[in-house]
């Protein structure tokens, strides 16, 4: 039954034939976890969206200087950002391979891909730290301007989400260690893959935002009615 039907049923009426209405497919442990994950992604989306909205608000204040747009600004040259993005993309791809391997019942490939995903994720985090270092050396420290404050804040929070994902990924790895079958591990791999792709999308959007020029902010802010 669709949502509308469910929310308009008259519960005081006896069910047809006296049997329980609304028979649903049995909920599994995996389905519950997936629902929880989707809700968590919604929470994270609200979290990042609010940060982005405050960023756009700030971008319209006098004294705000974008990190890109003019030749001397650090993100006018986006090579480094693209490099970091490719690391996270590789990590995400590795997760996808792990997922497909678990579906195809190839545990060794799955394990290998998971290790690869962790490797590239750690590389990404290191590269982000390196980027921090480079930026603060250029004089764009965390206090330099709201734009660079946001850069550190957003990347740090994104990085923390990735670290949390790595912690969760320990569980399927432990599963391999204990010799569990792929059936038991597959669910975790699937959920982690979803999360990885989500974080990739978040990063790409953040990349786009941080490397935009002031005109772009003006347009975006106008679109948001700020």
């Amino acid at each position: 039954m669709n949502l509308w039907g469910r929310l308009t049923e008259k519960p005081w009426l006896a069910a047809p034939g006296g049997v329980p209405v609304a028979a649903e497919p049995p909920a599994t442990d995996f389905a519950s976890k997936r629902i929880a994950l989707y809700f968590f992604l919604a929470v994270a989306t609200v979290f990042f969206s609010l940060l982005v909205i405050t960023f756009l608000t700030h971008s319209q204040f006098p004294g705000f200087q974008a990190l890109a747009g003019e030749p001397w600004q650090p993100f006018t040259d986006t090579t480094r950002l693209w490099f970091n993005t490719s690391l996270l993309l590789l990590s995400s791809l590795a997760m996808q391979i792990a997922l497909m391997a678990s579906r195809a019942a190839r545990p060794k490939l799955c394990l290998l891909a998971l290790v690869g995903a962790i490797f590239f994720a750690l590389q990404f985090l290191l590269a982000q730290l390196w980027l921090w270092q480079q930026l603060s050396d250029m004089g764009y420290g965390v206090r330099a301007n709201p734009s660079s404050s946001y850069f550190y804040l957003l990347t740090a929070l994104h990085g923390l989400h990735l670290v949390a994902g790595l912690v969760v990924l320990v569980k399927p790895l432990m599963g391999f260690w204990k010799g569990k079958s792929l059936d038991l591990i597959g669910g975790s791999v699937k959920l982690c893959t979803t999360y990885w792709h989500y974080l990739l999308v978040v990063w790409v959007l953040m990349f786009g935002l941080l490397a935009s020029s002031e005109e772009t902010y003006r347009t975006l802010a106008a679109l948001c009615g700020l």
Partner: peptide, 17 residues
Amino acid sequence: NYVTTILQARTAGMTLM
């Protein structure tokens, strides 16, 4: 936890309404 439990663990016949 609360949201998932309410959505997933309702017993037979416990429709939303």
